[in-house]
Design a binder for these strands. Structure first.
Length: 452
RNA sequence: GGCGACGUGGCCGAGUGGCUGAGGCAACGGACUGCAAAUCCGUGUACGCGGGUUCGAUUCCCGCCGUCGCCUCCA
């Protein structure tokens, strides 16, 4: 069974399942006010791998991931551009899924939207107010974090320590807040802003409330795993948890946080690599699988440098894997090599050790190629099957080259004939012609294979 | 200032108190090939700096330097 680092206990522990055979996961999704950037790509890709792996082991995965479609940034952009805010959220969400499809991230099983849950949020905030764990100020309703016993669990810091630090930062709503860490549950709206009715006046929910309500509604108390970026650990996840604790409800049993994409200097990066500005640009300029492979080759809790040469290296590595897929397309199906799969499972079960799993994948490809070179077809078939299993579990789709049109196949046949007749000038010309048309040409003693 | 994390070969990036430091890319040599390609085999004076613990440290401890994240809005 999968062992995962748990941010709350700061240790690698087994992911305990509330219900045998089923995994319930909540993943904090995007605020739809702009294009999906490279950092979003990492977030969704890492959890896509988690999900595929869990499903590959035979578990039934329910992955809930929200879309925040009401928020200050959305309103700001709408005002700036003089457009209705819904136009922005709808467009950005469409672009988001386009990008997700592009990088091969599967849709979550549930995609709740904040605006669909406003009534439930109002009800929850009402409970917190009634319990005297939230209070009103001139601009909204705030959560009283001091009323939550273990507030700071995910921050790894007590409220006093947070206060002791602090630096010279300005605290939002500081004037009327009881504690600087108190956070807004309900924001009273200004004229012209999107708003919903509430007992405290027209307004909109604060960011930290939607995930609590949605997670508890769709997954129920004590769900298995809550995921997101390391920057969400505090305050977002801390504050989600605080609300659940205040309500007396069991929340996530396990917390998983991934690290960032950083630039060459190691700085958190979300905007650009080379000529690429966002995720859609990335997949337009490069093989989208390359990004997945770059991520797989490092651990989800480590920062990853993403740059041109990094992506290029992955593209080259992918070419080798594709060549393997093409070479083995005709290999008879067999039971996957059990030893390889055992090794794969133990790597992945150890806090998703995808670097080790990926190393195993490349090793297995090499062994299979060697077996094929040595005519050991039985051995090769089992290894080939294992490669396909591992790729499936990691979400790596290999290309065996696809269909070759008749006229192109005819040229390949002509190439073979020229070589057989030792007319190498003609053979080279044909090969150059095919390559110019975008085909990867491999001429072997067994004939020519084509891929693109 | 508080808390968390990191510094590994030409590049990216795993890992470990000693036994040959994963894997990818690049480079070099060899096999195969008409030549390429693909494939296989082989090749590397690494662990920020200074102390300490130890028979032995890249791995543990202390200090320093550097980098990053969080401490209101972020994947």
């Amino acid at each position: 069974m999968l062992h995962l680092y748990d941010s709350a206990t700061r240790s690698v522990r087994e992911l305990a399942l509330r219900e045998p055979g089923k995994v319930s996961i909540y993943l904090c999704g995007p605020t739809v006010y702009g294009p999906a950037h490279i950092g979003h790509g990492r977030a969704t890709l890492e959890y896509d791998v988690l999900r595929r792996y869990l499903e590959w082991t035979g578990l039934d995965v329910r992955l809930v991931s929200n879309v925040t479609d009401i928020d200050d940034q959305i309103i700001n952009r709408a005002n700036r551009e003089g457009r209705p805010w819904q136009e922005i959220t709808e467009k950005c969400e469409r672009m988001w899924w386009k990008a997700m499809d592009g990088v091969g991230v599967q849709r979550p099983t549930d995609i709740p939207h904040a605006t669909e849950y406003v009534d439930e949020m109002v009800a929850m905030i009402g409970e917190l107010v009634a319990a005297d764990q939230a209070y009103a100020t001139d601009d909204g309703i705030y959560m009283d974090v001091e009323s939550v016993d273990d507030y700071g669990l995910l921050a790894m810091q007590t409220l006093d320590d947070m206060r002791a630090g602090g630096g010279e930062r300005e605290v939002v709503g500081a004037v009327q807040k009881r504690h600087p860490a108190d956070f807004v549950l309900w924001k009273l709206s200004k004229p012209g802003e999107p708003s919903w009715p509430s007992p405290w006046g027209e307004g909109r929910p604060g960011w930290h409330s939607e995930c609590v309500v949605m997670a508890l509604d769709l997954l129920g108390e004590g769900f298995d795993l809550h995921c997101g970026g390391q920057d969400l650990r505090f305050p977002h996840h801390e504050n989600e948890r605080a609300q659940a604790v205040a309500l007396g409800k069991g929340f996530a049993n396990h917390w998983m946080h991934h690290n960032f994409i950083v630039d060459a200097e190691g700085e958190k990066m979300s905007k650009s690599i080379g000529n690429v500005e966002n995720l859609l640009d990335l997949i337009e300029h490069y093989d989208p699988r390359a990004y997945r492979l770059v991520l797989l080759q490092s651990h989800y809790r480590s920062p990853v440098k993403l740059n041109q040469s990094n992506i290029d290296a992955a593209v080259k590595a992918l070419a080798g894997l594709d060549a393997f897929a093409a070479r083995t397309a005709g290999v008879t199906e067999a039971e996957p090599d059990a030893g390889v799969l055992d090794e794969f499972r133990s790597a992945m079960d150890d806090d998703l050790d995808t670097p080790k799993a990926t190393a195993l994948l490349f090793d297995t490809v090499r062994r299979a190629n060697a077996a094929l070179d040595a005519d050991g077809s039985d051995v090769a078939a089992a290894l080939v099957a294992a490669v396909h299993e591992m790729c499936g579990a990691l979400g790596l789709v290999l290309s065996a080259g696809g269909d070759v049109p008749d006229d192109v196949a005819a040229k390949a046949a002509a190439l073979d004939a020229a070589r057989a007749g030792k007319d190498f000038a003609a053979a080279d010309a044909l090969r150059a012609e095919l390559q110019a048309a975008g085909w990867t040409v491999e001429t072997t003693k067994d004939g020519t294979t084509l891929r693109r």
